[in-house]
């Protein structure tokens, strides 16, 4: 399965607007995307399409995320999510 480790650039972390954009983006693609802090085992990853689950990760700015995608658009979904997480909040 395609996967990637990406640093969370927005300073406040994966909260508020960056988090909702992240979930919206994950939902736009024909792919099942799951996410967790870097090093998270497969079984402990949570759904990237649930705002509640993503909020529960409590990821701070500067931390790294492991993102796994499965499905027809998996690679495109990972590209879009990586770009989003690499964008400072004031440019989102």
């Amino acid at each position: 399965m395609p996967e990637r480790v990406v640093e969370v650039v927005p300073e406040e972390g994966l909260h508020a607007r960056p988090a909702s954009l992240f979930v919206e983006t994950a939902n736009e693609y024909d792919a099942e995307v799951s996410v967790g802090p870097e090093g998270t085992a497969d079984d402990d990853l949570v759904s990237a399409s649930s705002m509640l689950a993503v909020t529960g990760l409590g990821v701070a700015g500067g931390e790294k995320l492991r993102i796994v995608a499965e499905g027809a658009d998996a690679a495109a979904a990972l590209d879009a999510l990586e770009e989003l997480l690499s964008t400072p909040e004031d440019e989102l």
Partner: peptide, 16 residues
């Protein structure tokens, strides 16, 4: 500090 975010994330984790 970021106490509210910690409370928010532990609440969210359990409410899933």
């Amino acid at each position: 500090s970021d106490d509210h975010l910690q409370i928010l994330s532990s609440l969210s984790r359990s409410l899933v």
